[in-house]
Simulated scan of single mutants.
Amino acid sequence: MKGAVLDDLGLHMAEADNVLTAIADLEAGMEISSDDATVELAEDVPFGHKVALVPIEPGDTVVKYGEPIGEAVEPIDPGEWVHTHNCESARGRGDRDASEGEVA
């Protein structure tokens, strides 16, 4: 399998990823450790959703599977749920140039 499972709680697919994918329903206060740091969950995160591993500022690219998947629209702290309330998808957007991520 590509990637690494961290503490049997999340999947970190590529070294470039700044998020991990929850492989179970996660509860606020749980801790997930990687080689670099330990992240405490700030809120509940549903199975299959993303958790920030590092601070992500508005305009920063959210990277999952080693690929850009969106852009932060507000500050996201490590351990926070990354979803539509704080991240805007860059995939399947007809209003953006796919090669540059720019608004068309």
Rank of each mutant, 00 (worst) to 15 (best):
M1S: 14
M1T: 09
M1H: 11
K2G: 00
A4I: 13
V5G: 10
V5N: 07
L6T: 04
L6M: 10
L6P: 02
D7A: 10
D7Y: 07
D7K: 08
D8P: 02
D8G: 09
G10S: 10
G10L: 07
L11F: 14
H12A: 08
A14M: 13
E15N: 08
E15A: 15
E15S: 10
A16H: 01
D17S: 12
D17F: 03
N18I: 06
V19M: 06
V19W: 01
L20I: 15
A22W: 01
I23W: 07
I23R: 08
A24G: 13
A24R: 15
D25R: 00
E27G: 09
E27A: 15
E27V: 14
E27N: 12
E27H: 15
A28F: 02
G29D: 08
G29I: 12
M30N: 06
E31P: 00
I32R: 00
I32A: 08
S33D: 10
S34I: 02
S34A: 11
S34F: 00
D35W: 04
D35I: 08
D36I: 03
T38N: 11
T38F: 09
V39D: 03
V39T: 15
V39K: 02
E40M: 13
E40C: 11
L41R: 00
L41M: 10
L41I: 04
A42H: 02
A42E: 12
A42G: 00
E43K: 00
D44G: 11
D44I: 00
P46Y: 12
F47H: 15
G48K: 08
G48A: 14
G48F: 10
H49K: 01
K50D: 11
A52V: 00
A52W: 04
A52C: 12
A52I: 02
V54W: 08
P55T: 07
I56A: 05
I56D: 01
E57P: 01
P58C: 11
G59D: 05
G59T: 05
G59N: 09
D60H: 13
T61H: 07
V62H: 04
V63A: 08
K64I: 05
K64Q: 02
K64W: 06
Y65G: 01
G66L: 09
G66F: 03
G66V: 06
P68R: 12
I69N: 04
I69E: 05
E71N: 04
E71M: 15
A72E: 04
V73H: 02
V73P: 05
E74D: 11
E74S: 14
P75R: 13
G79W: 01
E80N: 10
W81E: 02
V82S: 04
V82Y: 01
V82L: 07
H83P: 02
H83G: 09
H85Y: 07
H85M: 02
N86L: 09
N86C: 03
C87F: 09
C87E: 05
C87M: 15
S89C: 06
S89M: 03
S89N: 06
S89F: 06
S89E: 11
A90H: 14
A90W: 13
A90L: 15
R91I: 12
G92M: 12
G94C: 02
D95N: 12
R96M: 10
D97G: 01
D97T: 09
A98Q: 11
S99E: 13
E100M: 09
E100T: 14
G101K: 04
E102K: 10
A104K: 13
